[in-house]
């Protein structure tokens, strides 16, 4: 009998349809548990708005973020006495529109966080899979390197790396990726260790699956839940760390409208013009809070232990 016989084709089509239905059912179940957490849904909505803001910044921003309006230095927000309709959230000390800078800043913060998380997740998962699957010397070497990274406070290590690589956005991104890496390696390794002796993995090995297939196709999909939750947490950490590095002058450099850099530049005006400090910080807080709310919801929806309780 060959695979091309009509009966075999019908079987394959049936299996594919079943698999599609199973995926749909899984997603429906996930969404049911996720949507039980109202905070998570609100967080997701805010996060979606922030993404829209970042993508359509040139359309949404009322002004160019770098243009200095010489007649409007430190103009207060519109609702305060002396505020101007053209500058909703006021201007900074060189007359740049704060709202436009915050809208453009979303591009930097979210963009950097996405890059950082992609780098940390892919590298961390590969290293964790290698360590957990290979064991032995590979495991020891990888895990001791991760222990060393974890021995340093994250921000200090990021600062030192930024010094070595010269301050700037790229080096800040690389530094934060390295700092976040051990969490993914440890999580993946732990999950792989608990999965590798399960029957389905042994069955796949006996059926002749190679190492790469066993690692990435057989084991990895069953370790995804904690990794997704960790990726969300790392996303918010990355935003905070980028802002902190910018604040300390080791991240994005002025006049880049990155939120932390904006705060650093505004520091000396805090007692004279509260708005130059308040709004960029509020933008960081709202973004991080929204992502953490989503993270809590994901954890509730993906953790089977919590589902049962």
């Amino acid at each position: 009998m060959t695979n091309s016989s009509p009966a075999a084709k019908a079987d394959t089509a049936k299996l594919e349809a079943e698999s599609r239905n199973a995926t749909k059912a899984q997603f429906a179940e996930f969404w049911y548990y996720f949507s039980q957490n109202k905070g998570a849904v609100i967080g997701l909505a805010i996060f979606a708005l922030l993404v829209v803001m970042a993508v359509f910044a040139p359309v949404l921003a009322p002004h160019d973020p770098d243009v200095q309006y010489r007649d409007s230095f430190l103009a207060p927000p519109i609702w305060q006495e002396g505020g101007k309709a053209a500058f909703l959230l006021g201007t900074d000390w060189v007359g740049r529109d704060i709202l436009s800078r915050i809208i453009y800043g979303a591009r930097y913060s979210l963009g950097i966080a996405v890059m950082v998380v992609i780098f940390s997740v892919t590298t961390g998962v590969c290293l964790g899979l290698l360590a957990g699957y290979m064991r032995g010397v590979v495991d020891v070497v990888i895990m001791r390197i991760m222990d060393i990274i974890l021995s340093f406070p994250a921000l200090l290590l990021a600062l030192v790396l930024a010094v070595i690589l010269q301050p700037g956005l790229k080096s800040a991104m690389f530094a934060i990726s390295i700092v976040l890496l051990p969490h993914f390696v440890r999580l993946t390794r732990a999950a792989v260790l608990s999965e590798r002796s399960r029957d389905y993995v042994v069955a796949a090995r006996i059926a002749g699956a190679g190492h790469i297939r066993l690692m990435f196709t057989t084991i990895l999909p069953n370790c995804l839940a904690p990794l997704i939750v960790q990726a969300t947490l790392s996303f918010s950490n990355a935003i905070l760390d980028v802002a902190a590095l910018g604040f300390l002058g080791m991240g994005a450099q002025p006049p880049t409208p990155e939120w932390g850099t904006m705060l650093a530049e505004a520091r000396e005006f805090i007692l004279r013009a509260w708005w130059v400090v308040t709004f960029p910080g509020l933008a960081i807080l709202i973004t991080v809070l929204a992502i953490n709310l989503v993270g809590d919801g994901l954890r509730d929806a993906l953790d089977p232990k919590l589902k049962r309780s």
């Binding site: 905070l240 802002a243 604040f247 932390g260 007692l271 400090v277 910080g281 991080v288 953490n292 809590d296």
Partner: peptide
């Protein structure tokens, strides 16, 4: 728990500046 989540998400360098503006300024 809501307050704790806000605290957990707080950029502390900004929080410090706000406290200085309010309590010291």
């Amino acid at each position: 728990m809501g307050t704790a989540l806000v605290g957990y998400s707080m950029p502390i360098f900004w929080w410090a500046l706000l406290l200085i503006v309010f309590f010291s300024g």
